[in-house]
């Protein structure tokens, strides 16, 4: 099988402006991956599927990974011009100080796809895409038109991570119920205090019972 570098070169020859980036994997598995630009992802995916040498016709696994915003503290050398009294005179002196600055590295949600070839028997080739941020720009192109096996898996990512796949034929929640609001697999997800907050007929009954009880208490005829 081709190495990731060769696959990158092949993609860039076939899809101009694809801008593929290699993400190296430091573990012993050495499954390095290719990060695609969301704009060209469908074209690149179609190339990977239909190319004669690669023929990655089988999308095995599609999943999401959440990378929250990270606060990084880094030491920076800063040069200030300070007024100092040197030898009895006031002078402008340049002074270098080390300062700790805090910087927020914006997070993203990543979609990871593992591709294999049934025709050639090789794999995996790992491709990934990331969203611009975690809250407002969470759209990525859907690869379901290229590989049908992404259909339920992308629905699951949408459900649990909140990536909106544009071009998906049937993007609905897969595992959680329709009225559910949050995305449980995000790392900052907080489960509600009452787990039974799914709107049910039960709530209405409790509300009516409460009203009834307060009315009875007002009349003073409660046992």
């Amino acid at each position: 099988m081709k190495t990731v570098e060769e696959i990158k070169a092949a993609i860039e020859a076939a899809v101009p402006g694809a801008g593929v980036e290699i993400v190296s994997n430091p573990s012993v598995s050495a499954q390095h991956s290719l990060r695609l630009k969301p704009g060209c992802a469908v074209a690149v995916a179609t190339f990977l599927r239909d190319d004669g040498d690669l023929s990655l016709d089988y999308l095995s696994n599609a999943t999401g990974v959440d990378w929250p915003d990270k606060e990084v503290a880094e030491k920076v050398k800063v040069t200030h011009t300070v007024t100092k009294t040197v030898d009895g005179r006031e002078q402008q002196v340049e002074e270098t100080v080390e300062e700790t600055r805090k910087r927020v590295v914006p997070g993203c949600i990543e979609a990871v796809y593992h591709l294999y070839s049934v025709a050639k028997g090789h794999g995996p080739v790992v491709i990934r895409m990331k969203t611009a941020n975690r809250r407002t720009q969470v759209e990525l192109p859907s690869l379901t038109p290229v590989w049908r096996s992404a259909e339920f898996q992308e629905r699951e990512i949408f459900d649990l991570f909140g990536i909106v796949f544009t071009g998906h034929p049937d993007l609905r929640r897969l595992l959680m119920w329709v009225e559910f609001k949050d995305h449980p697999m995000r790392r900052d997800y907080r489960e509600p205090d009452d787990f039974e907050y799914e709107p049910t007929a039960h709530d209405e009954v409790l509300k009516r019972a409460g009203e009834h009880r307060s009315r009875e208490q007002g009349h003073g005829n409660r046992e």
């Binding site: 573990s27 499954q31 095995s60 990974v65």
Partner: peptide, 30 residues
């Protein structure tokens, strides 16, 4: 050590795979 791996076997029902990301901690990151 930090990194990721995808391992799969031929389970009786089909391809059963596990995808793990480690950040060096005692729990899997993903």
């Amino acid at each position: 050590k930090p990194g990721e791996a995808y391992g799969r076997i031929e389970a009786p029902k089909g391809e059963l795979g596990f995808y793990l990301i480690s950040d060096g901690g005692p729990n899997p990151y993903r």
